[in-house]
Amino acid sequence: MHRNAKIYVAGHRGLVGSALVRALDRQGYKQIITRSKAQLDLRDAQAVDRFFEQEKPDYVFLAAAKVGGIAANDAYPADFIRDNLMIQTHVIEAAYRHQVQKLLFLGSTCIYPKLAPQPLQEHYLLTGELEATNEAYAIAKIAGIKMCQAYNRQYGTRFISAMPTNLYGPNDDFDLQASHVLPALIRKIDEAKELNTNVVEIWGSGAPRREFLYVDDLADACIFLMRFYEENDIINIGVGEDISIKDLALLIGEVVGYAGQFSFNKERPDGTPRKLVNVSKLTALGWKAETSLKAGIQATYDWYRQHRAGAAAR
């Protein structure tokens, strides 16, 4: 991927897409193509095809997706499966039709079975039942993986699929009705500190364990894979370590400077008991995450404090 290649980042305003743009710019790539949703609705097949015909990108990072936490996935399953199927189908087809050199499709570790052995290995895909609360989103992502693999087999394309673990970082979604657990906890704990609230309620038992990858590390991994990975099989991106939701809350409380207590509402869903990915495949290629969880939370919290009004209202 030479420095003057035309690189389209789909979803450049989101958590992952904005990190990709930062990383590409930092690494000296000169021709980064972006479009906002208002400029290009990826659910519109004809608009996507016209865009590819006009811009003729050499490389595509497919980071555009409808995403959300447990509450959003559980409440709007039709939106999650429909929008994601449309977005990825239109971009992948256009990339094939307009002879894109290489495409990276970003999935999610929620594609793996709910009760799969830990840590999650790539070959566990489609070996068991999915977590019910995000089944619609997971099925859409699995379809995207299989679509990339099918195009590679039938048309000889170079479409690769990477499965990042739980992500967080600058430009995350802090809406309590839609966000993932880490940004939601940052907001709740920060607001409790500001209001001198003694107790913060957290959904679930606090026992589930999650792995968290700082989004700028993910962006570096994606560029690395675009340059060096050519296999048809999926590849995990993560740190290889996890933490309980309870301990995560305590760590965020330490970063925020919150002196209160945490209560756990066990009537709310826990989701998957544990989700840790095996990253040996990626490590063997020569890439490893660099940002510690505490350092990443601090950077994310600093960004949230600077953008709090807008971030909380998104």
Rank of each mutant, 00 (worst) to 15 (best):
Met163Tyr: 14
Asn171Ala: 12
Phe224Pro: 10
Glu194Ala: 14
Thr157Arg: 15
Gln121Glu: 13
Tyr214Asn: 06
Gln154Asp: 08
Cys148Tyr: 08
Ser161Pro: 06
Asp172Gln: 12
Tyr155Lys: 15
Pro208Phe: 03
Ala136Val: 00
Ala184Ser: 14
Asp217Glu: 15
Cys222Met: 13
Ala162Cys: 14
Ile160Val: 15
Lys146Met: 04
Leu213Ser: 11
Tyr168Lys: 14
Gly144Ala: 13
Arg158Val: 08
Gly144Ile: 13
Thr165Phe: 11
Leu106Lys: 09
Ala143His: 08
Val100Trp: 01
Ala178Phe: 01
Ala143Phe: 10
Val181Met: 13
Ala219Met: 08
Ile142Ala: 01
Asp220Ile: 07
Ala162Leu: 14
Asp175Val: 12
Met163Ala: 10
Met163Leu: 14
Ile145Thr: 07
Arg210Phe: 06
Asp220Gly: 10
Leu167Thr: 08
Ser108Arg: 10
Lys114Ala: 15
Tyr214Lys: 02
Asp173Ser: 14
Asp220Phe: 10
Asp190Cys: 03
Ala184Asp: 09
Leu115Val: 04
Ile189Asn: 01
Lys193Asn: 05
Asp175Pro: 11
Leu182Ile: 06
Pro164Met: 10
Leu195Met: 02
Gly107Met: 03
Pro164Ser: 11
Arg187Asn: 13
Leu104Ala: 07
Ile145Ser: 00
Ile160Tyr: 08
Leu185Trp: 05
Val215Pro: 02
